[in-house]
Computed example of a mutant assay.
Amino acid sequence: MFSVISASTGLGAWFSGAATGVGLFAVVGAQSAFILRQGILRKHIVPVVATCAAIDAIFIFASVAGLRTLTTA
């Protein structure tokens, strides 16, 4: 089942980071509450979601890259 993911170490790390990011986003924190509030108020929905998604993607990529560097060292 996971033979495709384990075939490439980088791809497996990416999927792991993406799954972690989705799991962290599911928990209602300050950022999620802000997005929900903006959605309810119908104010600046697209820029807020785009900015938060871009920042989350950068953090996920940086954390996966950092953990990969630590594990190979």
Rank of each mutant, 00 (worst) to 15 (best):
L70D: 06
A19E: 12
C52I: 07
A26R: 10
W14E: 03
S32Q: 15
I35G: 02
D56I: 03
T71P: 00
T72D: 09
F34W: 07
L36I: 15
A19W: 06
H44V: 12
V48W: 01
V48R: 01
A57L: 14
T71E: 05
A50L: 13
T69I: 15
F59I: 12
R37A: 14
Q31Y: 02
L24N: 07
A53K: 04
F34H: 10
L11I: 06
I60T: 07
I35K: 04
S32C: 10
G29R: 02
P47N: 07
V4Y: 09
R68D: 00
S6G: 00
A30N: 06
I58P: 03
A62R: 01
Q31I: 12
Q31G: 06
V64P: 00
A50C: 08
L36D: 10
A73W: 14
A65H: 11
L11M: 05
Q31L: 11
Q38V: 14
F25S: 03
V27A: 08
I45C: 07
T51S: 08
V28M: 15
Q38K: 15
H44P: 00
A33I: 04
A50S: 11
V28L: 15
G10S: 05
F15M: 03
A18C: 03
T69G: 07
Q38S: 12
F25H: 01
S8H: 11
I55N: 10
V49K: 03
Q38D: 10
F61R: 06
A50K: 05
F61M: 09
D56L: 08
L67H: 09
R68G: 00
G21Q: 02
G66M: 13
S63T: 13
C52S: 14
A33W: 01
A7D: 12
Q31D: 12
G23S: 10
F25R: 02
F34N: 14
I60W: 02
A7H: 13
L67D: 05
V4Q: 09
W14I: 07
I5R: 11
R42L: 15
I5H: 08
T51A: 11
G23R: 05
W14N: 01
S16R: 08
T72M: 14
T20D: 05
I55G: 05
A7N: 14
V64Y: 01
S6V: 06
H44S: 11
P47K: 05
A73I: 15
F25W: 02
A50V: 11
G12E: 03
G12C: 08
H44G: 05
R42T: 11
A62N: 02
A65T: 14
V27R: 08
V48F: 01
P47G: 06
G39Y: 03
L36K: 14
L24Y: 04
Q31W: 01
P47C: 10
A18Y: 03
I5N: 09
P47S: 09
V4I: 12
A73G: 13
L67A: 12
G66Q: 07
V22P: 04
F15T: 00
G10Q: 06
I58Q: 13
V28C: 12
A62S: 06
I40S: 08
V22T: 14
S8T: 09
G23E: 10
R37G: 08
I60M: 09
G10L: 07
S3P: 00
L41A: 10
A62Q: 03
A57W: 06
G66P: 00
I35S: 04
A18I: 03
I55C: 10
G23I: 08
F59D: 11
F2E: 05
T71A: 06
I58F: 15
A57N: 08
